[in-house]
Simulated scan of single mutants.
Amino acid sequence: MSADSPPDASPPGHVLLAPGRFAGALSAAGVARHLSAGLRRVRPDVPLVELPVPDGGDGTVEAAVAAGWREVEVEVCGPTGRPVTARLALRGRHAVVELAEASGMRRLPGGKPRPLTASSLGTGQLLAHAVRLGARRIVLAPGGGACADGGAGLVRGLGGRLLDALGKELPPGGAALRSLHALDLRGLPDLSDVQVVVAGDGAGPLLGRTGAAAATGPPHGPARGATREEIRMLDAGLRRWADLAEAASRTAVRDLPGAGTAGGVGFAALAFLGATIEPGPSVLLGLLGFAERARGARLVVTGDGTLDARSLRGAAPAGVARAAARAGAPVIAVTGRRALTGEQLRKARIQAAYALDGLEPDTERRVRRAGPLLEQLAVAIADEWLPRRP
């Protein structure tokens, strides 16, 4: 267990509900709540433990709080500069900071993408606040970001300054980095005794065809909003940023796997925070005390919005299944749509999968009614895996 205080012991013979989020429908905590509600109606005697498993994006702080961490609210700058109230999670000298809380797409006014000007400033402010609260190990959850500024805003939020040729502060965002002339890092705090771990999403390097700027346009979806010309502008700005940032930090990290994470926030974390980038599910499962919660479990229920090959590489079900196997607990999964064979499930150590599309084939209605449908699935799970005891 990597937090200072171990989780409370789970009751013997319990069912551990450890799902990921259903993107566009429910957070991981929401999925766990609906599964719990359905199971309690039909098996009120079975002890249930909810442990939603975040994927490093929206809902990571919520999941940590659900696991017993303390929620801390702080006012920071959103991705367009407007103030937002963001949360972080704290437990002893450990903290969870979520990029989406301060700099996420859901923080964009009216949901309108701002690929050229959106900033990660608020995330740097959240990190600084965690350090002031005494955190010495910080897990940064990078998913759901709205910016492609290479983490330049994050450095600003920690106290750095980015200057143009006239010595004036640059405007926020990745496009403005083309005019970057100098960095003033005298305001950065001493983070030599702070360990930062980025719960990575498998992103590529900072620059180029698989880099942070390229991820702001097709095929990554309209939410990020960049045109081809804007992608070229962003990539040029990120290249200028990388040149000066690597010179200032005496590092060479732009080509490392994960440097392009979250619009390049991974690059800034590597260069200025001495961060490591590690697989999200394993980091977060350890952080939440999954092994302790799974010990003695009668059944573990995990899940993901779509159960497919990607789920077996980096989403919650794969990590949960591996960790549950080590604890000797059987695992089943719930999903919106299943795209895996029985053999693939068995190789992933998942005994069975239950899909919402078997109850509601229409995608729009399935997303809208995901909660009640999960409660229906819970009845089938109880019948097959939790027989009534005489």
Rank of each mutant, 00 (worst) to 15 (best):
P387M: 05
A333I: 09
D383N: 07
G371N: 03
A262I: 01
D184N: 13
G59C: 13
L51K: 00
V367T: 10
D55Y: 02
L16W: 08
G274R: 10
R161T: 00
V334H: 10
D190Y: 08
L177H: 12
L238M: 04
P317Q: 08
A252W: 01
V65S: 09
L287N: 11
A128L: 11
P11M: 12
G187P: 08
L163Q: 09
A100M: 04
L377F: 08
P390G: 13
A309W: 03
R369N: 06
D383R: 14
P317A: 14
V31C: 01
S103N: 12
P6H: 09
R322D: 14
L185C: 15
I350R: 07
A148I: 03
A315R: 14
G237Q: 07
G145S: 14
L206Y: 06
A259N: 07
D304E: 15
R313H: 15
G266D: 07
W385S: 10
G167E: 06
V49R: 10
D357H: 15
E50P: 00
D308R: 11
D193P: 11
L244K: 12
G328Q: 14
A236L: 13
R349Q: 13
R326L: 12
D308A: 10
E364G: 13
V84C: 00
H14S: 04
R186M: 00
P113S: 07
A316V: 14
V84W: 03
V96N: 00
A100D: 04
Y354T: 00
R91C: 09
G174P: 11
G264L: 09
E75I: 02
V97A: 01
A329W: 11
A176I: 15
R156G: 06
P372R: 05
P257V: 01
A271M: 12
L170V: 02
D383S: 06
G157Y: 06
R114S: 10
A18V: 14
G157K: 01
D201S: 02
R41G: 07
A152T: 04
L177R: 08
V46T: 15
V65Q: 11
V84A: 04
P54R: 12
S27E: 00
L312Q: 04
R132A: 03
V283P: 09
V334R: 14
R366D: 06
T363W: 13
S282G: 13
Q195T: 15
T261Q: 11
P7Y: 10
A118S: 02
L163W: 08
L163K: 09
D255V: 01
D4A: 12
G78L: 04
G145A: 13
G305M: 02
A348D: 03
E364M: 12
A141C: 04
H220C: 03
